[in-house]
Simulated scan of single mutants.
Amino acid sequence: MEKYFLNPPELPNWEQSFSQIVTVRSGSLQTIYLSGQVAMDSDNHLIGEDDLAQQATYAFQNLEKALASVGASTTDVIKLTIYVKDYKTADVRRISEAFRITFPHKNLPASTWLGVQALALEGILIEIDAIAVMEV
C-alpha cells in the first residue's frame, strides 16, 4: 500500500494545516480522500461572500480541480459530505443546482448534508469533502 499527500497549486494553500488530497494505492485500486473544498481561490481569497449559490458553485469547481489533479473525475466519487453554515431547507435549491452541474451523470455518489453552526473561516458558507475510488 502506498500513500501520497498532495496540495495542488490550483487549490487554496492549507499545507501548514492539512493536505488537500490523500491517495492510497493498493493493487490496482486508488482511493482518493479529498479534504473539504470551499469557495477560496488559489490565493486563499473567498469567492462569493454572503452568496451560498456562488460559493457552492466554486466549492464544486474546486472539488473537480482536486479530482483532476490525480487523474480522477466526478464519476469516480463514491461519497460526498456537504456542510452548510446555518442550513435552511430553502438552501437545497441553490446547492442542488451546483451539484447537478458537477454531477450530471445517472449514478450519483452517496451523500450526507449537514447543517453546522460555523465552518473553519469567517464567511465560508459551504464545505464539500469527498471520497473517490478508481482503477490505476
Score class of each variant (00 low, 15 high):
residue 2 E to W: 09
residue 2 E to L: 12
residue 3 K to I: 10
residue 5 F to I: 07
residue 5 F to G: 03
residue 6 L to I: 14
residue 8 P to R: 11
residue 10 E to T: 12
residue 12 P to W: 02
residue 13 N to I: 09
residue 15 E to K: 13
residue 16 Q to C: 09
residue 16 Q to E: 15
residue 16 Q to A: 14
residue 18 F to T: 13
residue 18 F to H: 15
residue 20 Q to H: 10
residue 21 I to K: 02
residue 22 V to F: 09
residue 23 T to P: 11
residue 26 S to H: 15
residue 26 S to F: 14
residue 26 S to Q: 12
residue 27 G to F: 15
residue 30 Q to T: 14
residue 31 T to L: 14
residue 32 I to M: 05
residue 37 Q to G: 06
residue 37 Q to E: 04
residue 39 A to V: 08
residue 39 A to Q: 01
residue 39 A to C: 04
residue 39 A to T: 01
residue 40 M to Y: 13
residue 41 D to G: 06
residue 42 S to M: 15
residue 43 D to I: 06
residue 43 D to K: 15
residue 44 N to V: 06
residue 44 N to M: 12
residue 45 H to M: 13
residue 46 L to T: 06
residue 49 E to F: 12
residue 49 E to N: 11
residue 51 D to V: 04
residue 51 D to E: 13
residue 54 Q to V: 12
residue 55 Q to I: 05
residue 55 Q to K: 01
residue 55 Q to V: 01
residue 56 A to R: 01
residue 57 T to H: 05
residue 57 T to G: 03
residue 59 A to I: 02
residue 59 A to K: 00
residue 63 L to T: 01
residue 63 L to N: 01
residue 64 E to Y: 04
residue 64 E to P: 02
residue 69 S to E: 05
residue 71 G to M: 11
residue 75 T to N: 13
residue 75 T to Q: 13
residue 78 I to W: 05
residue 78 I to C: 06
residue 79 K to R: 14
residue 81 T to K: 12
residue 81 T to H: 09
residue 82 I to A: 00
residue 84 V to F: 07
residue 86 D to W: 06
residue 87 Y to T: 03
residue 88 K to G: 07
residue 89 T to N: 10
residue 89 T to M: 12
residue 92 V to N: 06
residue 92 V to Y: 04
residue 100 R to L: 12
residue 100 R to P: 01
residue 100 R to F: 08
residue 102 T to Y: 02
residue 103 F to L: 11
residue 104 P to K: 09
residue 104 P to W: 10
residue 104 P to H: 10
residue 105 H to V: 05
residue 107 N to F: 15
residue 107 N to C: 11
residue 109 P to H: 07
residue 110 A to Y: 13
residue 111 S to G: 10
residue 115 G to Q: 04
residue 119 L to C: 13
residue 121 L to N: 08
residue 123 G to A: 08
residue 124 I to G: 00
residue 125 L to T: 03
residue 125 L to H: 03
residue 125 L to K: 02
residue 126 I to W: 00
residue 127 E to L: 02
residue 129 D to T: 03
residue 129 D to M: 06
residue 129 D to N: 15
residue 130 A to F: 03
residue 130 A to G: 06
residue 133 V to M: 12
residue 136 V to P: 10
